[in-house]
Amino acid sequence: MLQLLWESRIQAVAVLLFAVGFTTLLLHRNLIKKVIGLNIMDTAAYLFLTSIGYIPGRLSPIVADGVTDMEAYVNPLPAGLVLTGIVVSVSVTAVMLSLTLRLYRRYHTLNLDEIYRLVYAEQEDV
């Protein structure tokens, strides 16, 4: 069991980080920290994907010295997926930050509970 854990230590850490980011995103009241949590969560998923996609001793899949043997290279797909995922999380982060900015300019606080109280105290604009 312990040996298995040691062998897959990077994945274990990734899952742990995912849990940290997940709880921060869900439970923290500060909007900026929520965004940080979101980024930790996504990055943890990419760490997991990168770590399983890398095989020690193999090269990145670019044919350089005429070596065309498949065994010499790693599979390029996980890295491609990570890149796609990074693009997604960058755009999501940008939207979240812009929303946070809007709320901060309006209510001068980053605490979600406080904002909630202020928003529902004002007259609804139908």
Partner: peptide, 24 residues
């Protein structure tokens, strides 16, 4: 309005939790 921006934030948070789990 204040309400729609707050609503969007809440919507995004729940959606992102969902898609994070889905991605993992």
């Amino acid at each position: 309005t204040g309400r729609t921006i707050l609503a969007s934030v809440r919507y995004m948070i729940f959606s992102l939790i969902g898609s994070g789990l889905f991605l993992l």
